[in-house]
């Protein structure tokens, strides 16, 4: 049996509709909102500020600290219990590692830059949406960055290579599924995050990576547009 049609009727290489905006949280130094389909991530940047406890300080450069959090009613099933859990801790860490290669914090020794990523609603692909929002928020805060970071999940559902899986596809039961969240620098296509859940062949993996490269470019255009619109007045209140 083969996988013929996606549940929401998209093409296999088609992303869900994207909405991106920066400057959504006025109290933060920089902030962004990134929606892809039903998944919605908000990111707020605070700092650079003094880092406590002091032993965590790095005298050579500033530290990036990310915090990923799903809001209580953001999931499709049960209420998400508030507070940290093992999954959130892992995603916070991989988000940090996917953003660190572009961010230059050597001008801010002994400080920390906090990025809070909140997800009011999720439908798979939340870490990718979080990374997209966080990189826009950091740029909005005026930090020196080599590039933005764009992220998307690719994978296979049965015999098809697909991009931007939603929850129904991730939970597909009639065949093997692989879910591969990837973060890339859009210009150089350097990979800063690559995780995988499921099983996939070498050839399919190569095909999935090519699809990711193409999709990342599409996402980057939305990120770029949102950052520019803040100043060109189209979204000013």
């Amino acid at each position: 049996m083969s996988y013929e049609k996606r549940p929401d009727g998209r093409n296999f290489d088609e992303l869900r509709p994207i909405e991106a905006k920066v400057g959504v949280i006025k109290n933060a130094v920089g902030s962004a909102s990134f929606k892809i389909g039903k998944t919605w991530a908000l990111a707020a940047v605070y700092g650079p500020r003094e880092l406590h406890p002091k032993f965590l300080q790095d005298p050579a450069k500033g530290r990036l600290r990310c915090n990923y959090n799903m809001m209580p009613f953001s999931g499709t099933g049960d209420r998400i219990r508030p507070g940290g859990n093992r999954r959130a801790k892992e995603i916070s860490m991989v988000t940090e590692k996917s953003l660190m290669p572009v961010l230059d914090l050597k001008n801010y020794p002994n400080t920390v830059v906090d990025v809070f990523i909140e997800l009011p609603q999720t439908d798979a692909g939340s870490r990718c949406a979080g990374i997209c929002a966080a990189s826009m928020a950091l740029a909005d805060a005026g930090f020196v960055m080599k590039d933005l970071v764009s992220a998307v999940a690719v994978g296979r559902v049965d015999d098809k290579i697909v991009v931007d899986l939603d929850y129904q596809e991730e939970a597909y039961e009639d065949g093997p599924v692989a879910d591969i969240p990837i973060a890339m620098l859009p210009r150089t296509k350097e990979v800063t995050l690559l995780q995988m859940d499921g099983e996939i062949s070498k050839e399919q993996m190569a095909e999935a990576l090519e699809l990711a490269k193409k999709s990342v470019d599409e996402i980057y255009e939305f990120q770029k547009k949102a950052l520019k619109e803040k100043y060109t007045g189209e979204q000013n209140e």
């Binding site: 572009v102 740029a139 020196v144 960055m145 080599k146 590039d147 933005l148 620098l185 859009p186 210009r187 990120q223 770029k224 950052l227 520019k228 100043y231 060109t232």
Partner: peptide
Amino acid sequence: SIAVPGEV
């Protein structure tokens, strides 16, 4: 015009 990080 406005530039964003990584823009050529």
